[in-house]
């Protein structure tokens, strides 16, 4: 394996000072106070460079080639920017981004609403609260693939819980995953069920950070419930709601497991998100070069979103209260 490029760790270490006392030798030099930070951080950075950065550079290279990972011996052929030009003019790719956007918008919107309502419900102390909270929080910690399997069972056309329940009322068979719209809604529901508790947790954190005296003052002023919410509660949860929105957007953008298990992108390609499409291009069609290029386009989108998230965190840290 190629050794990690040393230039990655070099900026970390301060300019090498001459050893203060040569009597202590190499170890003394290594353990000098000014080298403590870099020394502690080095193993982690090295691991990430080898396992994360190096493969990424590799795929950066691959994105300029036509290459099939199934035939390792066959040399890749240079296509320059061909992969990128192909991708940008490909209707299919555009459609996958639209599918993903639809699921992200639907799911994040639902999560924010349900999560917010759940947080209001659990914002006060009541008997058994801790135990009931556990039931609501559990979905968030489950495996994405397990949630996919759950909902696959629920949506199963003849024996699934939901089709049978609907049939009780309408008298007609109800096949959820049969049309693009219904399949998209089915995925949105599964994802929103899993992640609304996450939003709830963030909103709860916001609600408890509101100083009690503000409510007491509002009580004296006889402010109504809506006014109290708008002028006291909302300003305190605003920044956390924004964080929840950004974090969930980033995470939902990557949605793979649930879709892969539930619909495999079907019917047709109507629920194929960008991650599922990437998987297909890379591991069903084995167009490794093209997949690498598409990976880089997607990565760019995620980095933009992540920067926004971190910017929001720093703004929040700076504000008082």
């Amino acid at each position: 394996m190629t050794s990690p490029p040393s230039s990655q760790t070099a900026p970390a270490s301060p300019p090498a000072a001459p050893p203060a006392r040569s009597a202590r030798g190499f170890f003394g030099w290594m353990l000098a106070p000014e080298r403590r930070g870099p020394l502690l951080v080095a193993p982690a950075i090295a691991t990430l460079v080898i396992v994360n950065l190096f493969p990424l550079m590799w795929s950066y290279g691959l994105s300029f080639f036509s290459y099939n990972a199934k035939y390792l011996k066959r040399p890749p052929s240079w296509v320059g920017l061909g992969n990128f030009i192909d991708l940008f003019s490909d209707v299919d790719v555009w459609e996958r981004f639209q599918n993903t956007a639809l699921i992200v918008i639907g799911s994040v919107f639902l999560q924010l609403i349900i999560g917010f309502l759940l947080a209001l419900l659990f914002s006060t102390e009541f008997p058994l609260r801790r135990y009931l909270l556990m039931l609501v929080l559990a979905p968030m910690m489950l495996s994405l693939s397990a949630v996919g399997v759950f909902f696959k069972l629920f949506y199963e056309p003849t024996l699934g819980f939901i089709p049978r329940l609907v049939q009780e009322f309408t008298g007609e068979p109800f096949v959820i995953l049969s049309t693009p719209t219904k399949a998209t809604i089915a995925i949105v529901c599964a994802d929103a069920w899993m992640w609304s508790p996450f939003v709830m947790l963030l909103v709860l954190a916001g609600l408890v950070s509101v100083p009690k005296y503000l409510y007491e003052a509002a009580e004296i002023d006889r402010a109504g419930a809506w006014r109290r919410f708008r002028t006291i509660t909302f300003p305190y949860i605003k920044s956390l709601l924004l964080l929840a929105l950004l974090f969930r957007t980033i995470e939902t953008f990557k949605i793979f497991d649930v879709v892969y298990v539930l619909t495999e992108g079907g019917p047709g390609s109507s629920t194929e998100t960008i991650s599922v499409y990437l998987f297909r291009v890379a591991f069903n069609y084995f167009q490794t070069g093209r997949a690498s290029a598409l990976g880089y386009i997607t990565l760019f989108a995620v980095i933009v979103l992540t920067s926004l998230y971190l910017y929001a965190i720093n703004t929040r840290r700076a504000e008082p209260g």
């Binding site: 493969p55 990424l56 793979f256 991650s275 690498s292 997607t298 980095i303």
Partner: peptide
């Protein structure tokens, strides 16, 4: 960022 990155992107080169 390495953790926010979609795993599917990392897996393509790692698989190779």
């Amino acid at each position: 960022t390495t953790r926010m990155m979609p795993p599917i992107i990392a897996i393509i080169p790692i698989f190779v």
